[in-house]
Amino acid sequence: MAGNDKKSKNFLVSKIGGQQLIVLGVIVALFAFFCIKSDIFRSYTTILSMLDFSYFVAFMAIGVTFALITGGNDLSIGTGMVCYGIIGGFFVTKLGLPVTVGFVITILCGVLMGCFNGFLVAILELPPFIATLSTMMIARGLGSIVTGGSSITWPADAWFKNIFKISIGEAKYPLGFVWVVLAVTIMTIFLRHTKPGRYIIAIGSNKEATRLSGVNVIKWHMLAYIICGMFTGFAGVAYSATFPTIAAGSGAGLELDAICAAIIGGTSMYGGSGTIFGTLLGVYVMSILKTGLPLIGLQANWQQIITGIVLLVAVFIDVVRGKKN
């Protein structure tokens, strides 16, 4: 019996991965804890709100996982997401273009910034932290310049708002979660089962060895940042759908939520390992904490301390694993 248990456990561990299993347990525990402590947390509307505010973090986190896997980072995703949403919204509200055009522009801006980040990191070989710190500032300034410092309010009836939450009669359904799960599935297959995905992981474990084995490391390294940029574009759309008014120059700090999520989900800060599914789990650890802590009457600054401790534990696990390997 005992042997059988061990076997099934090993099977689970190999399929989902050790850290993910822990994180999944943490999610269940946190969820149960808040459900017991707070009537409000149990309500459907709270869960719905929690999901609403998780989509843009999830998209950013999926993107930044690719940058992290290469051993890099992308700090430009927070202000970038806001900037792209603002630029897209500017074309719609101030220049009168159709919502669809604004939608495409938002995503395109993300891809362009991804190209630029990739250029800086993969071709110019700048340290990713510094390169993307610069583009983070650039994105922050750019959004303000485009709108002249004022905020942008996308039309309230923009169609893409309904792709994240649909109303059937009185009831509202979190459709955005479907897109997030779809994105996770596609990007997991890409990362695990396609050549480019495997090259990206290889670059993160040992760039030089990968290059020597004949892989065009510059190309695939860049691709990781372009994917990150594209998902930041998606995040910009999700953010615009969730919050009616986007303030120019905001968004600093949101990248950290996404990076935290990826690291909690088991993506290594040293590069070379990480899963998209783990990142998704990390996103929901963050979301549950952000939603649940205010509901049990904890003051805002304590919420940050607790989130900080959770991140510390996750990084500690990463370091311990790094030493083992």
């Binding site: 409000i40 709270t46 709100s49 700090g253 949101l254 939603t291 205010p294 919420q303 940050q304």
Partner: peptide, 22 residues
């Protein structure tokens, strides 16, 4: 009185969600 830890829409909206259901 609710004040978010940072000027973050999600944090503020979560506060509002909590208040509205108090």
């Amino acid at each position: 009185v609710k004040v978010p830890a940072s000027v973050d829409n999600t944090a503020s909206a979560n506060d509002a969600t909590a208040l509205l259901q108090t």
